[in-house]
């Protein structure tokens, strides 16, 4: 209102026709879309780099916590049994079918010009270098990662972690380090067993289902076999074990919000573990296989 008490008439200046209007542009649909994309990208970038930063600090704290040996050493064997020995059946089960399928797939893929004993070569190379570590790692990412995240998440939401801190225990040394060490040590054991079983099942499938004899299969296996193949698979699986355990522990300790939060933490641990396995697999391939040719 103005001084006279009449409603003030606000005159909005009308822009000349044909000139762009800043306000209308700012509120148009493409602008809103672009804004949403920008906001999403900013969120993703923040989450990605924030996550990497948090993971880096978490890992650094875990490494630092390994110095408190008395806290973690008594628990390593227990976790090694739970995470490793108890996971052997899953790894072996996966390897049995992987070997069979690989043998059949190899015989299906090679043409008449390629000798059938190359089935052995393909089974050996694929099982040893890729499928045993990665498939077993993914399976264990579900089992081990979810297990760790659920355990630690439950402890977090029931304030057991806070109780440990109150009792002057380092939660990282007491809860995380033994799990990470056990997982890092036992993953190669499970993967090694998967390699042996996968190769054996591939051999049995070759002589049972294909027109291949044992000497032929062995010839194919030995043709391009190198100890590097086994070393590569085992080192890779150790890194997978470490990554899966770290992801599970990180997700578990970051749990908020009761049972629902525990579920989310378990899911997050599995997804993060699987992603880490695939990323590490690519990194190991780049580091170890780039420029390395197949020799015999």
């Amino acid at each position: 209102m103005n001084a006279s008490g009449d409603d003030a008439v606000v005159t909005v200046p009308v822009p000349p026709t044909g000139l762009p209007v800043a306000n209308s542009l700012a509120t148009s649909r493409p602008a809103r879309l672009l804004g949403a994309i920008g906001a999403t990208a900013r969120t993703l970038v923040t989450a990605l780099f924030g996550g990497i930063g948090r993971a880096w600090f978490f890992t650094r704290e875990v490494v630092r916590a390994t110095r408190v040996v008395s806290d973690w050493r008594p628990h390593v064997m227990e976790h090694a049994r739970v995470l490793g020995v108890d996971s052997l059946p899953i790894g072996i089960f996966l390897a049995v079918f992987t070997g069979i399928v690989l043998a059949l797939l190899a015989s299906y893929s090679i043409s008449d010009l390629v000798p059938l004993y190359f089935v052995g070569t393909l089974v050996q190379k694929t099982v040893t270098m890729e499928l045993a570590p990665v498939l077993t790692g993914l399976a264990l990412a579900g089992r081990v990662g979810a297990n760790i995240a659920a355990q630690l998440g439950t402890m977090r939401v029931t304030e057991q972690v806070d109780a440990l801190e109150t009792l002057a225990y380092d939660p990282l040394a007491y809860l995380v380090v033994p799990r990470v060490i056990a997982s890092t040590v036992m993953f190669p054991v499970v993967v090694g067993a998967a390699m042996l079983v996968g190769l054996t099942s591939g051999w049995l499938a070759s002589i049972g289902l294909l027109d291949l004899t044992t000497p032929q299969f062995l010839k194919g296996v030995r043709l391009f076999f190198e100890t590097f193949d086994v070393r590569y698979g085992l080192v890779k699986s150790a890194s997978f074990g470490c990554a899966v355990a770290l992801a599970g522990c990180h997700a578990g300790l970051a749990t908020r919000g009761g049972a629902e939060g525990v579920g989310r933490a378990a899911t997050r641990a599995v997804v993060l573990g699987a992603i880490l396995i695939l990323v590490l697999d690519a990194i190991w391939a780049l580091v170890w296989l780039t420029g390395k040719t197949l020799t015999h």
Binding site: A80, R81, V85, M186, V189, G192, A193
Partner: peptide, 13 residues
């Protein structure tokens, strides 16, 4: 169990 698993798998490998 853990020791046996490690030894057996290592020896077999």
């Amino acid at each position: 169990l853990v020791g046996l698993s490690i030894v057996v798998v290592s020896v077999l490998l």
